[in-house]
Design a protein around this nucleic acid. Sequence first.
DNA 1: ATACTAGGGTTGTTCTAGTGAACCCAGCTG
DNA 2: CAGCTGGGTTCACTAGAACAACCCTAGTAT
Lengths: 166, 166
Amino acid sequence: MTRMKRTALGRFPCSVARTMDLLGDWWTPLVLREVFYGVHRFDEIQRALGIARNTLADRLTRLTAEGLLDRVPYQDKPARHEYVLTEKGRDFFPVLAAMVRWGDKWLTAEEGVPVDLVHSCGQRAHAKTVCSECGELFTADTVRSRMGPGFPAELAGKPEVQARFT
Amino acid sequence: MTRMKRTALGRFPCSVARTMDLLGDWWTPLVLREVFYGVHRFDEIQRALGIARNTLADRLTRLTAEGLLDRVPYQDKPARHEYVLTEKGRDFFPVLAAMVRWGDKWLTAEEGVPVDLVHSCGQRAHAKTVCSECGELFTADTVRSRMGPGFPAELAGKPEVQARFT
DNA sequence: ATACTAGGGTTGTTCTAGTGAACCCAGCTG
DNA sequence: CAGCTGGGTTCACTAGAACAACCCTAGTAT
């Protein structure tokens, strides 16, 4: 994992970089999407995505080690396992949903979106991102950032760092 | 761009894959984050991220070509430009916000989050993902997927593809 | 004249993520 | 016994992503 080094030396820490460190390669989000879709078994995922077997094995191992997936046995006679989402893994759904929303809106040709999402309210729907406190839209121009408690002290003093938090 | 090939031959099309094709490398989301933060100039971004100059040039060119950024001159004497978000680019904010939310929740050590987000309502807040229609939470277990109008016809017939949309 | 700035382009090297193909093993099936 | 399935592992190879270092152009300040 080269990426760990980058964040470690990283000029500027944030959860985007940390998240990309863990899940930011091409396959990982797709593997997660499959599991969200209810595709839980190694060979099913492999066939569905056309991913190389060792690459998939690596992704599943990593996702399990990071606590997004659990490897649970579903039969005993020949030991077989399937991969199910943990709470940490299920909680990643909004990120995928936001990506789907963006892609559906901006990358869709005339024939329409490849996949429709249906919410439990019965409507065809998409993800909408709102403020956790007031419920209004959470957009680039309604959100400001401030240094948080976990901001690295050695960076907090630098003028160019402070400049961006005004 | 190897990735274009993958989606092209892709067993299973979706906006996650399409979005990852465009923006799914390690640096692109970080470059976008900088621009969201108001860091608009080449050298500023380069210093802030510690990214190699040619890599940054490539990302900026790509983001501009894809229509997420505009390259606008801000002075003439020596021609200088800065990169500003288009509507397509600004609309990507929810994806970053969802990533930040997930990272803040699951990857934060005891010292707390590195960056606080403040919404225009005045509260410290985070992104919340809700159904565009009813406003209730948009989560893995409240959302089902169906084939959309843009689903490739040659795949729609296959039994293993249909199996996942039941 | 010199040096410095902003915004790149170019070159050459390294490194690694992904790949296909082969192999392995356990346990059912015929 | 042979072969298939599920779930992997090991190997050798390669395309391309990132990097450092240097060059370039215009203007500007010293």
